[in-house]
Design a protein around this nucleic acid. Sequence first.
DNA 1: CTGAAAGCGCTTACAG
DNA 2: CTGAAAGCGCTTACAG
Lengths: 334, 334
Amino acid sequence: MKIYTIKDIARKAGVSVTTVSRVLNKRPDVNQATREKVERVMAECHFVGNANARGLKQPDGDLIAIILRGRDNPFLNALAEAMLQHTQGLDASFLMEFVDEQADEFQTALRLSHEKRVKGFIFVGGRIDERAKVLDGMDSPMVFTTISAENTSFSHAASVFIDDRAMGYQAMKTLIDAGHTRIAIFGGIRQGDDGFAKRYTGAMDALAEACIPFDDERFVQTRFSLRGAYDTARSFFESKPDTTAVFAMSDTIAFGVIRALQDMGKSVPADVSVVGFDGIEMSKFFIPRLTTVEQPVDDIARESVQVLMDMLERGEEPRHIIVDAKLQIRESVQ
Amino acid sequence: MKIYTIKDIARKAGVSVTTVSRVLNKRPDVNQATREKVERVMAECHFVGNANARGLKQPDGDLIAIILRGRDNPFLNALAEAMLQHTQGLDASFLMEFVDEQADEFQTALRLSHEKRVKGFIFVGGRIDERAKVLDGMDSPMVFTTISAENTSFSHAASVFIDDRAMGYQAMKTLIDAGHTRIAIFGGIRQGDDGFAKRYTGAMDALAEACIPFDDERFVQTRFSLRGAYDTARSFFESKPDTTAVFAMSDTIAFGVIRALQDMGKSVPADVSVVGFDGIEMSKFFIPRLTTVEQPVDDIARESVQVLMDMLERGEEPRHIIVDAKLQIRESVQ
DNA sequence: CTGAAAGCGCTTACAG
DNA sequence: CTGAAAGCGCTTACAG
């Protein structure tokens, strides 16, 4: 199939490329009859235009990239989806880029900054570590989502996140209040000061407050997948069968744990209580329904877009915004 | 941050842009010392290059687009993921485009064909209807996945799919063999000849073979979401409480139905049996584990990529490939 | 309201 | 091994 260029259209319509470009960009200064003729020719040829050529000249308005790490994470996906919602009607265009677990989202950002002249970034589900150094020279505003950028060297990075420590505390407290003392924690690494480490610290706060000692072998590091959590849970409960409750740092982990318990002849919540984290849709449908910390997806999305636009369009300073999460009491704890 | 162009690099390195372009493209005909100098300057400047400018000149090799309809469909996502796997080492580059339920994937294809010079297309989870007419003039090879393009006007469209009718038959037969006679079907529309209609026909075959009449009110059209299936199931079971089995045309629908039944005091499979379709990962972890038709994600992905490459690189004729699905007997039927 | 011309950042024959 | 120059398809002052 022949691919038509603006030049072909111009020739066919008997006008100059300038004029074709004008109608293409819906500029007002074109004679109505001329416009219609050009539009007819474009329609006939299924003309679409070459984005590369356009991008080469046009500043593209403000292009904002939403960089999402982890394609198969339902919570992160919901978050990205919600951001796209809050993007409507804004004076900027957005593009969404997925990078997988092994990839470097900062390299991706750098590339996007050059290749597509991306002016602002929203990182969804990333980490902040040494790799971030490549962005040192970049003065584009960016916001980290679900993670605090407060104590980092990024002066132009905003962030939107929940109080992970407080929510870790609440999750653990729910279990303690239900009378549990031999409680396991399934989640990400405890070191550092990312959200997972904070949830862990919060959980420790609750334990300390209730004067319940924590058996360190009950901290279980696991992959954030059904299969990973399942396997980890099976071997954990082999060695620590007297554990009566689990704080899982994601709903997906919780599902895997519950499945494993079921297969070992223990039911949830009768024998073991489980609390999850994130509050993805499945948590309302799983059997049992999951008691979990629900992250306010919509709030996080809205605030993230808002703060970025404030920085980008009004030159405001980056803010670090804490949004309220909520413990949803359902059926998996007793 | 200054964005460096090839020209800046050339000046800083004291060479011509031609030379910079050469090292950028890793061409062999550059003096080693020159190459190193240029590379050093590029590294210092975090030079990345402008994709628009590059795309304007370079044919881009063979670019293939995987167009996925429905971001939140776990089955389709797994399929796309698997395709990317089978893409490794191929002499072509791939890009993945998501369109949501309302969007027109054929318009997307047309746009991609022009804007990015996409040479081949893989449609994941689409429909073939009148909208497809816009591709009439396009002679790029394409393959439809999970749906047959055999009886369409697209002479250059291949397709890879399972035998939906046979699998619909098997799903229903499983329920019949377990002794059920009042069976409901939850799924997409019955008309047309897409996969859903075929699954329906297959189910009817099984019913007819067993001389079990089908009460038309037991066909329930529903959205393919947890919430949609849940709501539909609640009102359906209000009016048809004597139904003892459900054939759900997707696992997600099945989960919603099971949840609804549970909330109405019926348990699965003790009171109602449920068979799903697709075999997504959650079907192995849900409680009860779901008896379901497992689509061979990896086979579909491999064959799709294969047939497209055969058409694109070797000029072969489009094929229509049926891959084997498998009924996975688990816990939700008794 | 319309068009000729310069230029966006890169690649690629072509000549040396 | 290296560079000057043309050109990819478009946009945009500028002039009329």
